[in-house]
């Protein structure tokens, strides 16, 4: 499988981009070329140079330093928001699957259908306005919308696995339902969950960028790609590069996770390659 994966162009490129973003984010924890919050009005709106590789913003802050800290921010959002969706969603989905057709199953799936019908960005805006703007609340708002996605996928996949003979054998051998779920069902649906997690990760980064662009996501002085884009719009004519880099960073990170997801889908499920 690893051999097949390494020959899959989408997987390799996606993995390379994702690893690069991850390394930059880790690097940003320990080192940035300049203090990304240091304001130097005398050096405002400078074009890219040897000291400020990507130039400076309207407060004279170093754009490159803000950009790599933004990577940390984006990954944090992705990890926590997808984590919320995965942990709660998969648990709900597997519980629903074990009681297929029961009132509990119906209840869980109806609530999922209902959440799906609410446009995510709109609801996130509402949640954020009333919980108050900020990174933590943005992550919660994005995470909530990941729950029904994973619940549905986990339920569907778990139902398929539970129809197999080895589940009946395990049951006959006296294993409890939680034991079967943990030992036999979960490992067999991990692949499909990983693929979806990769796609949701990309969507979470896009969502946080959008919310921060609107000014209700990450708050200053914490750098966020979306907020940098919003700031850049005021100085578009004077300093066009300010609008280029944060957007390119978002696009690159999202591209990486999307390609990784596409690649993983092909590698983990070779049947989809035949199309």
């Amino acid at each position: 499988m690893i051999h097949r994966a390494l020959r899959h162009p989408s997987f390799v490129v996606g993995l390379a981009i994702t690893l690069m973003v991850l390394l930059i984010a880790i690097l940003a924890v320990f080192w940035t070329p300049h203090d990304p919050t240091a304001i130097r009005i005398s050096a405002r709106l400078r074009p890219p140079s040897a000291t400020n590789w990507l130039g400076t913003d309207q407060f004279g802050r170093d754009v490159f330093s803000m950009l790599i800290l933004g990577a940390r921010n984006a990954l944090l959002v992705g990890i926590v928001a997808v984590g919320i969706g995965l942990s709660i969603g998969v648990a709900l989905g597997m519980v629903a699957a074990t009681g297929e057709g029961s009132l509990l199953d119906e209840g869980i799936m109806r609530v999922c259908d209902f959440t799906f019908a609410f446009p995510a960005v709109l609801t996130a805006i509402l949640i954020l306005t009333f919980l108050g703007p900020g990174l933590v609340n943005a992550i919660i708002a994005i995470g909530i919308f990941n729950i029904p996605v994973f619940a549905r996928i986990a339920r569907g996949a778990a139902l398929q696995v539970m129809a197999r003979d080895y589940i009946r054998a395990a049951r006959a051998a006296g294993r409890s339902t939680p034991g079967i779920l943990a030992r036999h069902v979960l490992p067999n649906i991990t692949g499909i969950l990983i693929v979806q997690a990769s796609v949701q990760f990309a969507l979470a980064i896009l969502a946080e960028a959008g919310l921060s662009y609107l000014g209700i996501g990450t708050q200053p002085p914490n750098p966020s790609w979306g907020r940098m884009l919003n700031d850049s719009q005021t100085f578009l004519a004077q300093a066009p590069t300010l609008a280029l880099f944060p957007g390119a960073a978002i696009a690159l990170a999202v591209l990486g996770f999307n390609m990784l997801g596409d690649g993983l889908r092909d590698v983990l499920d070779p049947k989809s390659l035949e199309r």
């Binding site: 896009l206 959008g210 850049s232 719009q233 609008a243 944060p246 957007g247 696009a251 999202v254």
Partner: peptide
């Protein structure tokens, strides 16, 4: 693939530029 990754508001800003 790239079109999917580009945030539409950034694309908007680029077109304004």
């Amino acid at each position: 693939q790239v079109g999917l990754a580009i945030p539409n508001f950034w694309f908007g800003i680029l077109m304004v530029l």
